[in-house]
Amino acid sequence: MSKVIAVISGKGGVGKTTTTANIGLGIAMQMKQCVVVDFDIGQRNLDMILGLENRVVYDMVQVMDGEAALDQALIRSKANRNLHFLPASQTKDKSVLESAKIKQLLDELKKKFEYVILDAPAGIESGFEHTIEFADSAIVVVNPEVSSIRDSDRAIGILDSKSQLVKDGKEVEKKLIINRFDPDMVEKGEMLDSDDILEILGIELLGIVPEDKGVIDASNQGQPIIMNEKSQAGKAYKRISKRICGNKTPIVKPKASKGGIMGRLKGIFS
């Protein structure tokens, strides 16, 4: 049965689009048919992170308006044949979205794909509300900082009041990804620990992605970090993708380094 998952955060710049690209590819690597949909109308970015920007011809707004067929707008990923991408319109704004058209589009996508991943825009305005409206579940992406957590908390509150599932008396499943986690900073007391974040937000943890400088370069190259076998962030996204697909992969919490060159040498000989 097909599942629609909205990737939300409330705050911008926490790695929502990067997460969408990586888990989309990760799910495809699990041999599941997956589509990632960019709902950030007017601020399209997912195409670049997937390295597909030069292949965009039609967008989701044109599909919803009947100007293009869904198959014309869908782009197959170069990295994995199981992954498809539906781009947002770059020339229109969020006001073009209509509930009925979105539902129709998602119903069509659900017929074709096992996983439909929606990349929500930042903020809690109409674009966000349309993204969560017909989602079966949500992945909340936070950075370990208070402003990100408060904005996510706000986004969860809106999800719990405005999604169609809630209006139908059901519950929207919500899972948390803590992104850009730096265990060294946590150890120094400079960053919130994952337990603190979980206590505040009160939702289930899906995974912790460590801070990894390679993520920016990977995004710039259009090759999601999950393709890098050595990257810790890439490994974290792989584990997260497996969990989304129902595999019982244990959650790995990044550990602090042992401090400096001497500490690392001690670590090697201990």
């Binding site: 408060r150 904005d151 706000r154 509150g157 719990d160 009160g202």
Partner: peptide
């Protein structure tokens, strides 16, 4: 009963 979230 549940957590009162930001904005509520």
């Amino acid at each position: 009963k549940g957590p009162l979230r930001s904005g509520q």
